[in-house]
Nucleic acid binder design. Structure first.
Length: 608
DNA sequence: GCCGTTTTCGGCCCGACTGTTTTCAGTCG
């Protein structure tokens, strides 16, 4: 939650681009939910608005479209009150309800929710009893001893708030999956090596392969003869651990030196599946399947799936499995099966309709790394890469690839040593020559051509037609207004020789928003004229992102998952593109570079 | 606030850990 309570909802909202309209509205609902929490209104009210916020963020279409079509009322989770806020905002560029709610508490209280250990109840208490309205005042109040004597706030609590403020200042926020995955893997290895551990897995958003990770979750099954508190004592002594947040008999939380939170959960082997399911989440997915369990007379917890009537009578102790035989608990698959669901891959567990698909046994068969047959966007020393054509080709052969497109930069990318038309023609000849020499792989002579600010390309058609394949990408002017940006990409998609739009938005995770494209206009066009859209697998691009990639396949667009490798090592990033694709529900049939070489060429020829 | 092949009212997922407590509230995931 950021401090936008006073910055959204103003008259400026009318100039918003379509997709950021969804995000602006999502912010409004998130803010309102936070205010409800602090004001102590029904927690379910806050949950309902948080859910609306998430729905808006996840939406693959423009909310204004639903409003215009009159289908707003059909969206599950958006009720009458939310609809009123949305309609108000669309019509007037502001919401009276939002303004009333957001001004009912000091705006400075909302960022206080980010302080670990400090929740809405305590924030409200500090505000009402001591007049604290922001983090700075909280620090001052603690230093001056003003919190002494507050009911329910003892010395330890004050100490933990102080620590929470310090932790928040040093916390780096969400880290990229590229950084978190190796940390998670190495910690899990270390856990597995502990005495008494039968198995251990990474869980949480890392297992779901989200593009950024809030913390690392690990679930471990322990030998029944071992005391779990001894294992958690070992865990908190790991060299990576800088600070212990909590430590019990079945659970431990720590902070690493890098500021990353790691949670370990210890369970008996027979409860491992339930714990892994619970700890993997997402929270919304858990809520969905737990409520399904209740509908079927069962209850699901991190210990297992149980018959509800028997469960209520059973003996339960903290940090111990309930004393009754579960319906299912050992594996995730057992639990899904007992709930009448097909197994849901972790990447799909986001409550975006996967449970309904699992019930109907219609989950997509998700793409895997092994399905990739080539890379269609790579660079060499001819522009800004560090490997030769032959070196890149050899690395691709080693990966088992059947084809490889060499697509160095065009002339506008001066900084990247972009090719002039003359140099490009020579480069094409060099690629063709290498193709004749290298065995086991087809090399395509390509180019990553700049999409200029008005949608023209960096080379004339006379040059483009000499190439086997063209990737067209936006590199500059990435802060265009939505209409212009959309027209710019439209023109590129419409260009005869363009086969793939590279990193279509130009976004960079945590540092650049990218073009505010109206993808609802672009995707049908791309689907119709046979232009593929890229999932650029390089971090921090991952562009298209999972939401946009999902919208793309829903519109019938062919995707291409490419690394944009600038070295042979760069090929290794393909897995991150696969992660995005899996989270988007992408199957082999959606992806250009999962096709045979012949079919790739047919796809290209068809547009020419 | 949202929702409904048991409901238009009365529910809403479930448990661990911490701190301030003589039985529980708050926070977190």
């Amino acid at each position: 939650m950021d401090n936008r309570a006073t910055s959204v909802g103003g008259a400026g909202a009318l100039q918003l681009s379509p997709m950021s309209l969804n995000h602006e509205l999502a912010d409004i609902f998130r803010t309102m939910a936070a205010v409800f929490e602090i004001k102590g209104e029904s927690i379910f009210k806050a949950i309902a608005f948080s859910k609306v916020s998430r729905i808006l963020n996840d939406m693959t279409f423009d909310i204004r479209k639903a409003y215009d079509d009159g289908t707003l009322a059909q969206i599950e989770g958006i009720g009458a009150s939310s609809r009123k806020v949305i309609e108000d905002y669309l019509k007037n560029g502001r919401s009276a309800d939002f303004e009333e709610v957001s001004t009912s508490v000091p705006a400075g209280l909302l960022p206080m929710l980010e302080i670990p250990g400090l929740g809405p109840k305590t924030i409200a208490l500090l505000w009402k009893e001591r007049g604290v309205t922001n983090v700075e005042e909280l620090v001052k109040a603690i230093d001056e001893g003003k919190l002494d004597g507050l009911k329910g706030i003892g010395a330890k609590k004050i100490d933990s708030i102080k620590q929470g403020i310090a932790l928040r200042a040093q916390a780096k926020g969400r880290v990229g999956i590229v950084e978190a995955l190796p940390i998670g893997d190495s910690l899990v290895e270390r856990v597995r090596a502990l005495k008494g551990i039968k198995q251990a897995e990474v869980a949480g958003s890392l297992r779901r392969r989200k593009e950024t990770i809030g913390d690392v979750d690990i679930v471990a099954a322990i030998d029944g003869k071992v005391d779990p508190s001894e294992i958690s004592a070992e865990f908190v002594k790991f060299p990576e651990v800088q600070h212990i947040l909590g430590q019990g008999t079945s659970k431990a939380s720590v902070l690493t030196a890098g500021g990353l939170q790691v949670d370990l959960r210890l369970v008996p082997e027979e409860n491992f599946g339930a714990a892994l399911l619970y700890f993997t989440g997402s929270k919304d997915h858990n809520v969905r399947i737990r409520s399904r369990a209740l509908d079927r007379g069962m209850t699901l917890s991190e210990w297992g799936l149980y018959d509800l009537a028997k469960y209520e009578k059973a003996e339960k102790k903290t940090a111990e499995a309930p004393k009754l035989k579960p319906v299912a608990s050992k594996t995730e698959a057992d639990i899904y099966k007992a709930l009448g669901l097909a197994y849901v891959e972790p990447e799909m567990r986001e409550d975006r309709g996967e449970v309904a698909l699992a019930e109907a046994n219609k989950l997509p068969k998700l793409i895997t790394l092994a399905d990739i047959r080539g890379d269609l966007h790579t660079h060499t020393t001819a522009s800004d890469g560090i490997a030769s054509i032959e070196e890149m080709a050899a690395a691709a052969v080693a990966l088992g690839y059947k084809f490889l497109a060499i697509t160095d930069h065009s002339k506008s990318q001066v900084i990247a040593n972009g090719l002039t038309a003359e140099r490009l023609l020579k480069h094409i000849a060099a690629i063709r020559k290498a193709d004749g020499k290298v065995k086991g792989i087809k090399l395509l002579a390509g180019c990553e051509v700049d999409i200029l600010v008005d949608g023209r390309l960096d080379f004339e058609e006379a040059v483009l037609k000499e190439l086997d394949i063209v990737v067209a990408s936006p590199h500059v002017s990435l802060k265009q207004e939505s209409g212009k940006a959309t027209d710019r990409l439209k023109r590129a998609i419409d260009t005869r020789y363009v086969n793939i739009i590279g990193h279509p938005t130009g976004r960079l995770i945590n540092s650049r928003e990218g073009l505010p494209l109206d993808l609802a206009q672009l995707f049908p066009l791309a689907a119709k004229n046979g232009t593929a859209m890229e999932i650029n697998a390089g971090y921090p691009r991952l562009d298209l992102n999972e939401i946009n990639a999902r919208a793309a396949i829903e519109a019938g667009v062919t995707l291409s998952i490419n690394t944009d490798a600038h070295s042979t090592v760069g090929f290794g990033e393909m897995i991150y593109g696969i992660n995005v694709a899996r989270r988007a529900g992408v199957m082999v049939s959606h992806v250009l570079n999962c096709m045979s070489f012949t079919d790739v060429m047919t796809f290209i020829e068809k547009k020419r």
